[in-house]
């Protein structure tokens, strides 16, 4: 059997696989609405969802006003982080690229503490916009620094610029919170990475950005495939490498910025899920991107559900759960899987 038939067979299986993932995501989302730190019977959940109960009951409030927005946010943020990670790994040709090392988290955190100390802003609903601005600014700064010089934003220069901007923003944040305990308290809540305590206003605030970014990312698959062959080859194939890079970075900035602003820095999703997707799909970004888009929310919501049920009547933040569960999984991938080069 020639390798091209293998590839064709694989592509044939990938379409239904995507549909299956969509079904799994729907199941997980349903579980995320029915399971939580509060015990609500399935019938109560269904009645609340279909508006059959009165508006006033606590079961209705928890289901409709808390779990539904939380689940939708988990889907949007998860998809955003996964796709941003996949695009970033593709465009930088760095299998360890993650939105964190491109300065997104540190930029967002720096702007949150600046907003708190300089402008006296309070409450997660307001400072997500500062976090968003900070994330975008940091990403653009990384890209601009890396673009200096004749050869443009090469993967190595991007990684170095990302590290430098992260360090700079990080020390700014540390400097402020060392002298301002209010900022520390506010940042503490934001910095863990959580889907809790965020409701409809935050969801509707970031949703447009996530949707635009996700749709735009799906158009990038072919260009990323070209870049994966190396810049010279990509150029030889007639691709405008600089333009591709800039567009990819804009998508990463919007997706990761919105996701991080809404929920704080959530680790591992953007790093691991693209590897899982690549493991399933092979090197074709036209498949890796949609697979990442569905796999990531599944992972994020599952971790969130775990966090909600293990510490009743309290909750564990999803960022903590992902950190604890994600590290061994990642080690497993590195150790036993074939960590294919992006």
């Amino acid at each position: 059997m020639s390798s091209s038939t293998v590839r064709a067979r694989r592509a044939l299986a990938l379409g239904p696989g995507l549909a299956a993932l969509g079904a799994i995501l729907a199941l997980v989302a349903f579980a995320s609405i029915t399971l939580g730190s509060r015990d609500i019977g399935l019938s109560d959940v269904l009645r609340a969802l279909f508006g059959l109960d009165g508006d006033g009951s606590i079961e209705h409030t928890v289901t409709v006003d808390m779990r539904v927005p939380r689940t939708l946010l988990g889907i949007g943020v998860g998809a955003g982080l996964g796709v941003a990670g996949a695009v970033l790994q593709g465009v930088t040709r760095n299998p360890l690229a993650d939105t964190g090392i491109m300065g997104v988290n540190s930029g967002a955190a720096a702007f949150v503490v600046l907003a708190i100390t300089v402008l006296g802003v309070r409450g997660v609903g307001v400072y997500i916009w500062f976090a968003f601005a900070g994330a975008i600014l940091a990403t653009l700064l990384v890209y601009a620094i890396a673009s200096l010089g004749r050869e443009g934003a090469t993967p190595v220069k991007l990684a170095l610029a990302g590290a430098a901007v992260t360090a700079g923003m990080g020390s700014l944040t540390t400097g402020i919170v060392m002298t301002n305990v209010d900022a520390l308290n506010e940042l503490r809540f934001w910095q863990v990475g959580s889907l809790a305590g965020r409701y409809a206003p935050i969801l509707s605030g970031v949703a447009p950005f996530l949707i635009v970014g996700l749709v735009a990312s799906l158009a990038c698959g072919r260009a990323l495939n070209g870049l994966a062959l190396g810049e010279d080859t990509a150029r030889g194939l007639g691709q405008r490498v600089g333009l591709t890079r800039a567009a990819a970075f804009a998508i990463v900035a919007v997706l990761a910025g919105a996701a991080t602003a809404a929920c704080g820095p959530i680790v591992f999703v953007g790093l691991i899920v693209p590897h899982l997707a690549r493991f399933i799909c092979g090197p074709d970004y036209r498949w890796i991107l949609p697979y990442s888009m569905l796999l990531s929310p599944i992972v994020l919501l599952l971790a969130d559900i775990v966090g909600r049920v293990v510490a009743r009547p309290g909750e564990l933040q999803v960022g903590v759960v992902l950190g604890v569960l994600g590290a061994p999984v990642f080690i497993g991938i590195v150790r036993y899987g074939r960590l294919s080069e992006a």
Binding site: A196, R312, G314
Partner: peptide, 20 residues
């Protein structure tokens, strides 16, 4: 009835359980 064993000053309630 269920203070945080690691930090017994408080019982932590998720917002879903605020009305416990």
């Amino acid at each position: 009835d269920k203070p945080d064993p690691g930090f017994p000053y408080w019982e932590n309630l998720s917002w879903e359980n605020a009305d416990k």
